[in-house]
Amino acid sequence: MIYSVDVRIEVPVRDTEVTDRVGDAVKNLFPGTELTHEPGALVGETHELERFSERLHEQTILDTARREFAKRKDDDGFSFALKKQAAFKGVVNFAVGNPDELGDIEVHVTVGDPTVDELINYIAPPTEDGRPIDPDER
C-alpha cells in the first residue's frame, strides 16, 4: 500500500506549442495531475502513479524503468525524464542523452512512506524473463 508520495512534474512550453496539448501529454500518463501555468512551463503535482505504472506494464518496459529510476535515485526519492511527444500519445518513452529541442517532461518523485525501493518495486517490479516476479513465489 502506498501512503505518502509527492510527484512534481515540470515541462517546458515553447512558443510554438499549444499549452493545452502539452498539458494533455502530462495527463495521459499522470491523469490526476493539477497543472499550473508558469512563464514558459507547466508545473504539476500529483500523488498517484497508477496509470504510469500500468503503461510500464503494458509496454513491457519494467527493466528499462527500473534502470532509469536508479540513475537519479537518493534516500528521498527519484527523478526521470520523459519525451513529450510520446507522452502525448500515451506512451512512456524515457528521455536519455541530449534533451529534446522542445524539452522533456521532468518528473520528481518524493517518497515519504514506504521506502524509495519499495515504491520502485511497486511501480516497476523486478522481472525474470521479462515478466514481473511475484514476491510470494520466491
Rank of each mutant, 00 (worst) to 15 (best):
G40N: 03
V11E: 05
D15C: 12
A41R: 13
H37Q: 15
A81E: 15
K73N: 07
K27M: 11
T33Q: 06
F30R: 01
E58K: 09
V13Q: 08
I61K: 07
F30D: 03
T64W: 05
A87M: 00
F80L: 05
S79Q: 12
E34T: 15
E17A: 03
E17C: 05
L29Y: 04
T60C: 08
P39L: 09
D15L: 15
T46V: 02
R8L: 07
D75F: 09
H57D: 05
T36P: 06
K83I: 10
K27I: 03
A65W: 01
R67A: 13
R55H: 08
V91M: 11
E54V: 10
H57I: 01
G90V: 04
E45P: 00
V13C: 10
T36E: 15
L82Q: 02
T33A: 08
V13S: 09
A65L: 00
L35H: 00
V5L: 04
E10L: 14
G23W: 00
A87S: 11
E68H: 04
V22C: 09
E54I: 11
E45G: 10
D20I: 02
H47L: 07
T16P: 00
E38R: 09
D75V: 09
R21M: 14
R21A: 13
A25F: 00
K84L: 10
E58H: 03
F80Q: 05
E38D: 09
K84D: 05
D24I: 09
F88P: 07
G90I: 04
N28D: 09
L49D: 13
T46E: 04
D6L: 14
R51D: 11
L29V: 06
A70K: 10
D75R: 11
E38A: 11
D24Q: 15
V7M: 09
K71R: 15
S53T: 07
T46I: 00
N93Y: 12
A95T: 00
V13I: 12
V43T: 04
T36N: 11
